[in-house]
Design a protein around this nucleic acid. Sequence first.
DNA 1: CTTGTTATTGCAATTAGTTGCAATAACAAG
DNA 2: CTTGTTATTGCAACTAATTGCAATAACAAG
Lengths: 143, 143
Amino acid sequence: MIDSNPEVSWLRSQGYRLTPQRLAILEVLRSANDHLTPSKIYQLVVADLPGLTEATVYRTLNFLAEQGLVLVAHLGRGQLVYEIAEHEHHHLICKECGEMKEIDHLEIKTLYDQFLEDTGYQINTIHSTFFGLCPECLADTAQ
Amino acid sequence: MIDSNPEVSWLRSQGYRLTPQRLAILEVLRSANDHLTPSKIYQLVVADLPGLTEATVYRTLNFLAEQGLVLVAHLGRGQLVYEIAEHEHHHLICKECGEMKEIDHLEIKTLYDQFLEDTGYQINTIHSTFFGLCPECLADTAQ
DNA sequence: CTTGTTATTGCAATTAGTTGCAATAACAAG
DNA sequence: CTTGTTATTGCAACTAATTGCAATAACAAG
């Protein structure tokens, strides 16, 4: 288990504690490298930490999201999903077929610069989701 | 109660039904003209419709959102909020003080054009939320 | 290594949101 | 107005998520 990367030792320096629960949840998200729901995360982590509770998973995910170590999103129906904060990106999701496309943060940066100029707000949302139609479904509806 | 506006009669033409529950929920959102949580909406509507249940409020809000008559957002902590879909806008929210600024959809339209050009996705999210710092809090943290 | 402080967890209770199903009531057609 | 079809509701059970509190265990200091 990787427990000595920069983010993690930074946590300790802030007075937060490195618990097995936090490390295991981070590890699961890191190796999954995908969006996971809290209950899926619970299932995966409880295998290694038998005493774990769902309440802890929810609290830990909120905590890690606040600290910027994981990213949250609601990709449509229902539950929120979490993923490790590795690279800054956003999502385009097709409402018709569910197809998802990642776009780099650079594509949006210009917009944030414009927000700052127009309103004085410095935006730093690093994980937005935009809904619409993918190229295939767009072609289908055009017929 | 306004029950004969274009959106509403369009619903009927689609085979959906105009129930007192739907009309009352729309009316509450219309007169509030603000973001409301499902439980707040329930409180306001049940005064006029004693038999109403929360389940119906949730189902109706999902339905109205799918139909594009109301807009959903999660403006930070926890619950989703709903508002009447009157004008197309987005929100900038300060993570520090909670201050909120509305921005017109025009500001973002260029980005959507760029998505279409780069990826073929036609995005139509008309109610995004971006988090960051408002001018005041930005100045405070700079000190 | 031992000890004290207190952040964090587990537990259990609570609140938020969803869903299956039978009863109800919109509304189109006669 | 009456009738039939079926979308929608209420009810109740269920799943998802949050929270208060006492017990636990990180970890800093000695």
